[in-house]
Design a protein around this nucleic acid. Sequence first.
DNA 1: ATGGGTTTATGATCGAAATCATAAAGGGAG
DNA 2: CTCCCTTTATGATTTCGATCATAAACCCAT
Lengths: 225, 225
Amino acid sequence: MNGGFSLPLSKDDIPPSDVILGKFLIIANVIPEALLEAQGAKIISLPKDSFLFMEGDMAQHYYQIKTGKIKMVNHNDDGKEFVQGYFEDGQSFGEPPLFKASHYPASAFGFKATELYKLSREKFLNLLRENFEVHLQFTTKLAQRMMYKAMMMKEISSHDPEHRILSFIDYIKKESQAGDKPFTVSLTRQQMADLLGIRVETIIRSVKNLAEKGELSIVARKIIR
Amino acid sequence: MNGGFSLPLSKDDIPPSDVILGKFLIIANVIPEALLEAQGAKIISLPKDSFLFMEGDMAQHYYQIKTGKIKMVNHNDDGKEFVQGYFEDGQSFGEPPLFKASHYPASAFGFKATELYKLSREKFLNLLRENFEVHLQFTTKLAQRMMYKAMMMKEISSHDPEHRILSFIDYIKKESQAGDKPFTVSLTRQQMADLLGIRVETIIRSVKNLAEKGELSIVARKIIR
DNA sequence: ATGGGTTTATGATCGAAATCATAAAGGGAG
DNA sequence: CTCCCTTTATGATTTCGATCATAAACCCAT
């Protein structure tokens, strides 16, 4: 999953559920910290439950998580939220608008207290210029996220909650590299709902149905497939 | 929209509607043809109404359209289709799975008879390696498509057909760089339906509603905003 | 251990988009 | 011009997820 880099991730102190939650959508474990520091990246702190930037803001900086967890999220008019993704240690987020100096399509929210590297747009582009391997690595991660979004769009468009849920679980299972081994979903049903654009109640009911059909099993409320 | 390159696009023989249709989702006018040829790209022909590759196939080649039009599309079990995007002259498509040697998340369909450059994965990556500007250009286009998908996911998830339609039209209007000038949507209602994951009838009714509300106007069945 | 907040659960009702059916209008090829 | 196919249009009906309401189970902090 790290695609070549061995960053000092030290996930030992993170509870298992979070590791799994992070597994999928860990999509851009991008730039070695040494390189960021060499370019002059600053380290900043984002408190839990606060926003780093809001949907619509102009993108000026590259951000990469040192430790913590960020939720990229859209809020529609009636307050409902749609989660574009979660990002954790070593991952970057919110880079797409950097390239054309445009605005963020979603807000960045501190799901946990988070420490981040912050690098100006110019220095970021410079870093890519001077480092083909990092650039390629970055593009690769972007491409992966792209495919995730393509998959989700297809699923979301053909609304059938059960199908959506299964595809989603299979995707994160694959990401987790669990192989054939039973895979435990560590997301809450609410989190799945926000990622899939479905109400919690519907998730709960659909999951139960899927369990009855034998497509997955529920043990101690956890979803296993 | 071309972002720096002036490719010999010669769109003169393409009717206006197609130019406009192509305007949006023209997102990766990527590699100068001279470079492709230098790397040894072959030119192949894809007949109208045929598939170049299918969802699930392993990605082995980089494709860039010389002339014609490609539709990237998913088919769900009951035959309904979801269109990920249209691509035209000068654009590339289906590149994300190239980076990790994985399979296509959607099928490529000849919306018109199309001539394409075809380049092996290795040579494509090589080309990026040797050409920072092209690589950056490519990443930029990928980032743009990414943002389009993020926007669409958010819209699709918060189902309100009218809202979705307006956001979509505003997006393609912006892409077309029409500014404040009235913008005529050149997509059929069916095409909009397939791009938005809504039924045609719903599009028709919603558009009519929006016209009554004054959000847009319909002239000779064409949607103007 | 206890209390408060979250997560899971379940039933009842509603509503909006999908579906089904049918037809008129437009457009292109010969 | 005419025929045929696509696109737009409109009404009737159905369906399934959203919504509302309520409560049990669980978990964590003090």
